[in-house]
């Protein structure tokens, strides 16, 4: 048994380093940027024509939260090539598997994380905005210096949840031909007829990564909560 594990482990780890982790990290970064923009648009007090933009972002959040991630991956990778529209895409939208995966994971994470960030910003007292505005800060400064640092503390645990979820969800990319960790475990299992062992091994690898992330989360929570009084 050990010889099988020792043989499979390097291949799994290599796939993890080459695909699973980069996909998760890149998609999370894009997702966060998208989430922040979405949250700010939806919280903006601006009305008028801006309402159209708000509706578009609301639709985006609704779309990605209301459909399964696996289906989203299939639409982007297998479906979009059939979206033929003469002015822009006469031959449909053909994306590489990795690009399609990262785009879908980013959009999906962005939709969920935008709700987290929106709630975190909305949870701050109005007085924080007012005190910062009264000093004469621009809205940009108020957000950068006063609101977002405080919102980050509130949003950190749910965002860490999203990231951990994303790391595991990248295993769905196996279904769009990406040879990430889970796909490699399937290939090895098909060769050595040890599905229980192989899938347990890959599960363990996911668990190790996610445990490290949980630990990191705890550490970051401590840092960002420095200023909060500890409960007795």
């Amino acid at each position: 048994m050990w010889s099988i594990i020792i043989k499979a482990l390097p291949q799994l780890i290599a796939a993890g380093i080459k695909y699973t982790l980069p996909m998760a990290v890149i998609a999370f970064i894009f997702g966060l940027i998208l989430a922040l923009i979405t949250a700010l648009v939806r919280l903006s007090p601006r009305g008028g024509a801006f309402n159209i933009i708000k509706v578009i972002f609301r639709f985006y959040v609704w779309l990605f939260r209301s459909t399964p991630l696996l289906v989203q991956l299939f639409i982007v990778y297998f479906g979009l090539p059939y979206l033929r529209w003469a002015p822009l895409w006469p031959n449909g939208i053909k994306l590489g598997a990795l690009t399609a995966g990262i785009i879908t994971f980013s959009l999906n994470t962005g939709a969920y994380a935008s709700e987290t960030i929106r709630a975190a910003i909305a949870s701050l007292p109005r007085g924080q905005w007012e005190a910062a505005y009264a000093l004469g800060m621009t809205k940009r400064k108020v957000l950068q210096r006063i609101i977002l640092p405080q919102a980050l503390r509130v949003a950190l645990p749910p965002l860490a949840n999203s990231f951990i979820g994303l790391v595991k969800d990248t295993s769905l990319a196996a279904s769009i031909t990406i040879v990430e960790m889970f796909e490699v475990s399937q290939q090895i299992a098909a060769e050595n007829y040890q599905p229980l062992l192989m899938y347990s091994l890959v599960a363990l690898l996911y668990a190790v990564v996610c445990s490290l992330l949980s630990w990191l989360q705890g550490h970051l929570e401590k840092i960002t909560s420095r200023y909060v009084l500890k409960r007795p």
Partner: peptide
């Protein structure tokens, strides 16, 4: 302000 509104962070 009445309730100070200092920046807690």
């Amino acid at each position: 302000f009445q309730d100070y509104n200092l920046f807690p962070h």
